[in-house]
């Protein structure tokens, strides 16, 4: 659980970098927030986020492969929790 909180903190930090610190405070970034819905992220911003996640976690988290397999519906409803859970799973495997 502690790990999950830390991953969330990190992901939130990376999202802030993508959206821009000047804007982020007007959004409520929570575990349940969806990227395209609540945070109004463009698909290209999500790609940017995945780049950042890749850089941070390195090869252990094959984020892009995971993303490529998501359906359109899943992409649209993608929440921070989904990402955190996925990263957590990868890290545990390691």
């Amino acid at each position: 659980m502690k790990e999950q909180t830390e991953i969330f903190k990190k992901v939130k930090e990376l999202i802030t970098e993508v959206i821009g610190a000047e804007f982020i405070e007007e959004y409520t970034v929570e575990m349940e927030s969806t990227l395209t819905g609540d945070l109004e992220m463009e698909s290209i911003e999500i790609v940017e986020l995945s780049e950042k996640i890749k850089k941070h976690y390195g090869g252990a988290v094959s984020f892009s492969e995971w993303m490529a397999k998501l359906s359109l519906e899943q992409l649209i409803n993608l929440s921070i929790k989904d990402i955190v859970t996925y990263i957590e799973g990868c890290l545990q495997l390691k």
Partner: peptide, 13 residues
């Protein structure tokens, strides 16, 4: 190609 991209952590659809 996609296989190689996945290995490079490049998202492709």
């Amino acid at each position: 190609l996609q296989e190689k991209l996945n290995k490079m952590q490049v998202i492709s659809n």
